[in-house]
Design a protein around this nucleic acid. Structure first.
Length: 577
DNA sequence: GCCGTTTTCGGCCCGACTGTTTTCAGTCG
């Protein structure tokens, strides 16, 4: 049983506990455990097998540790089975409808005999729901509306799309409201999560109402969910929810912090504040003893007031960042400016859209010290992969580009298919001629775990393989990752000195954050590359850096933060392994 | 159910908005 499945069960236990009327603290404990498990870098199943103590994980106590052990050893949990049996199966789905929580779901079930979403729809249409005390026509209509769009819209938006949309809306708002003094995005977008639930915007303006109204009036807005004096919430025509919070004055630090979250981080932060005799909300800090209010112009001063080092937004996941900040041990995370080159770039020699020179010119304009040209190998017929003859000719041309783009060094390379049996698409005589070999799985992605794991490890053992490209092959929201023993892959990568890629393309982000974190822990060299197929694609580097930062990576953990000489030296190490 | 620079027991984050209410419960983030 993997962490995602475990987390799902504890999330359901939390929901069921709510229905059962357990105290909110019990519910919260299960929710917290679910979140912790979801983001934990190691599979708990392996953790338990290795005899490690689950209770060392924050948020996991005696009771939940026992439940996890039962789940990973038997695949079942008696407590959960019994709990589930107490309620109709459809009740959890009813609770998934926005606006319907445990209280309402239970009433619908007990007072109207509603046991499924379909039952509920019928009950609303029949007019039975609006007759219940403290519900009413408006509530019933809202539930119906949400119920009917439940299956139709994607729940989360990939970060690339959300980022574009956020920037568009922010530009529009600035034009419409000249009184805006500051406008930033917050939430999961700012934390560089791979998918975004809704876009959170924070704003400082003299006239908050004007900005709220402007948001509601944007042409791309399909529905206004709520509109108050400081807060507006809309859904765009593309189905993305945008929440906007506007304040007057300069007390921006606490607001931005609050809306950046995560929720789990904020809960921990407020608990921490309470222990210091302080109370924290989105306006600032209140000293409990005196009632004195303090505001903060920026986040750094807010964290400092709470006795904490600044916590970069990507680390605000509600895991160990608070403890680390208290010990003043937050590392200096890798930054976009640390990136010295891109080691995975395509041109129109294969399936890229731009010519070689255009790609190189764009890389030079970014100030890179080097770039590797890595078009597809011949196995990718559909991607116009390069035959042996063409790759050797391209390598010649690429080498000849050196000196034409200032100090930027141009490296030869290829993105070589790892075939189903783990062999590579080019013979060694060819690979030997290339500076950078990105080995990637592009076919037979459905192989069984053992086969797939062995296949990739075989590629790592090839001395000419520099890096494994987009290791999981997933496309976010479109294609599931391969099934592989990640722990085994990470150990093999560390042993052979093969880098693993953090593919920065926002539809991939592969390795993902938790995998990158585990790889880093095991000493695997990481390379952040854009896999650009166009000039614009080169701009995706910051998404990859965001993933690396979420994985607590420092510059030293990322190979292509080294200068040209450093990278060459590192690559020589791999060839001699 | 978890947890400890007040504590192994007694606490546990905080506010906005909606819809239904004459003061607030439920939901959400």
């Amino acid at each position: 049983m993997n962490n995602a499945q475990l987390a799902d069960i504890f999330d359901k236990i939390a929901d069921l506990s709510q229905l059962k009327g357990e105290s909110v603290f019990v519910v919260r404990a299960y929710q917290r455990a679910s979140h912790t498990i979801q983001t934990f870098p190691t599979e708990l199943e392996r953790y338990v097998q290795e005899g490690r103590n689950l209770r060392e994980i924050p948020g996991i106590g005696e009771a939940i540790a026992k439940k996890i052990t039962e789940l990973v050893s038997s695949g079942k949990l008696e407590f959960y089975e019994k709990l589930k049996a107490e309620f109709p199966e459809g009740l959890l789905a009813i609770m998934d409808i926005p606006g319907v929580g445990p209280k309402t779901a239970l009433r619908l079930c007990q007072e109207l005999g509603v046991n499924s979403v379909a039952d509920l729809e019928q009950a609303i249409v029949d007019g039975r729901v609006e007759q219940l005390p403290r519900l009413g026509k408006k509530t019933a209509d809202n539930i119906l509306r949400h119920l009917r769009t439940l299956g139709t819209k994607e729940r989360r938006t990939p970060i690339g799309q959300a980022m574009r949309q956020a920037q568009g809306v922010m530009a529009d708002l600035r034009v419409r409201c000249p009184g805006i003094r500051r406008l930033e995005f917050a939430g999961s977008l700012r934390r560089y999560q791979e998918t975004i639930g809704d876009i959170d915007l924070v704003c400082v303006a003299a006239d908050p109402q004007q900005v709220i109204d402007a948001l509601a009036g944007l042409p791309e807005v399909a529905e206004v969910l709520g509109q108050g004096g400081t807060k507006g919430s809309v859904v765009t025509k593309s189905g993305v929810q945008i929440d906007l919070r506007v304040v007057q004055g300069e007390a921006f630090g606490a607001l931005w912090q609050y809306l950046t979250g995560s929720k789990e981080h904020n809960v921990l932060l407020r608990e921490h504040a309470n222990r210091l005799g302080l109370s924290l909300n989105e306006y600032g800090v209140t000293v409990a003893a005196t009632g004195a209010q303090e505001t903060f112009a920026d986040e750094v001063s807010l964290y400092a007031r709470l006795g904490l080092a600044y916590i970069p937004q990507e680390l605000r996941q509600g895991t160990r960042e608070l403890d680390t900040a208290r010990r003043n041990a937050i590392p200096r995370l890798v930054e976009l400016a640390d990136m010295r080159g891109d080691l995975h770039v395509h041109t129109d020699w294969s399936d890229g859209r731009a010519p070689l020179e255009a790609m190189l010119a764009a890389c030079a304009a970014k100030g890179y010290a080097y770039v590797a040209v890595t078009d597809h190998s011949s196995g990718r017929g559909i991607a116009n992969g390069l035959t042996v003859e063409r790759i050797l000719r391209q390598a010649q041309e690429v080498r000849a580009m050196n000196g034409r783009f200032g100090d930027m060094r141009v490296l030869t390379g290829s993105e070589v298919d790892i075939r189903a049996d783990g062999s590579l698409d080019y013979p060694e005589e060819v690979l030997r001629e290339l500076d950078v070999v990105v080995a990637s799985v592009h076919s037979a992605m459905g192989q069984a775990r053992e086969v797939m794991t062995e296949r990739i490890i075989k590629a790592m053992r090839n001395p000419y393989v520099t890096v494994i490209g987009h290791p999981s092959t997933r496309l976010i929201g479109e294609r599931e990752p391969i099934d592989a023993d990640w722990e085994a892959l990470f150990r093999a990568a560390a042993e052979t000195g093969t880098a693993l890629e953090i593919n920065a393309s926002p539809e991939r982000l592969d390795l993902k954050d938790s995998h990158a974190a585990r790889a880093r822990e095991l000493g695997v060299p990481l390379i952040i590359s854009t896999d650009a197929h166009s000039v614009e694609g080169l701009d995706a580097m910051h998404f990859g850096v965001g993933v690396a930062r979420r994985a607590w990576c420092e510059a030293k953990d990322v190979v292509n933060t080294k200068g040209y000489d450093g990278v060459r030296e590192w690559m020589r190490g791999k060839r001699n392994f």
